[in-house]
Design a protein around this nucleic acid. Sequence first.
DNA 1: GGCGGCGATACCGAAACGGTATTGGCGATC
DNA 2: GATCGCCAATACCGTTTCGGTATCGCCGCC
Lengths: 93, 93
Amino acid sequence: MSLVQLESFVAVAEAAHVGRAAARLRVSQPPLTRRIRSLEDELGVPLFERSARGMRLLPAGERLLVHARRILDAVAQAHDEVRRPGAALPEPE
Amino acid sequence: MSLVQLESFVAVAEAAHVGRAAARLRVSQPPLTRRIRSLEDELGVPLFERSARGMRLLPAGERLLVHARRILDAVAQAHDEVRRPGAALPEPE
DNA sequence: GGCGGCGATACCGAAACGGTATTGGCGATC
DNA sequence: GATCGCCAATACCGTTTCGGTATCGCCGCC
């Protein structure tokens, strides 16, 4: 499981379409399809139901979505705070 | 920033040696050195102080360590709960 | 039954990654 | 203060991963 996979997953979940999610992520559709599939393979659980009108989250996908957002938020926060010179941890000289 | 980078960072921070961390992660030393450096480059902040006796966390590294552990924990938890059939979210059919 | 839009696949070129071998540099030792 | 040893950093190369273009197959809609 990688952050790219999680980011892709959230985008597809929100767009409910691989194609639209791909446009939003500025990649083409095939890589995104592969990322989702590799994520499902890795977890051993299908996350979406595919249909001719798009992608619909399955229960496992709903559960993952909550975690994925939390993880991506934590990453963004880490990214911000590391640069911030206002240290949270004092350094004993 | 990738999960592999964060995992590598935590390992190096805990071991205080790239070599030992590499052994623990079952990779050789050079890739680990590169992961740390690419992470520093990406964040634009040095995370370790290098010396002839190993690596020592700098303040920015101390801050990142807290976040990195939280992120990796969240990933592990997501990994677990997604498989778990005991759904947390009901599905409105 | 034909058309349009969707995701899945095949294929190929480029980029990322890991390993082995080597270098460079600081610290401890005598 | 020269030498040896341990550490991270770099060079180089083979492999693998990844993304893009082109295409396929399928279902819903008109």
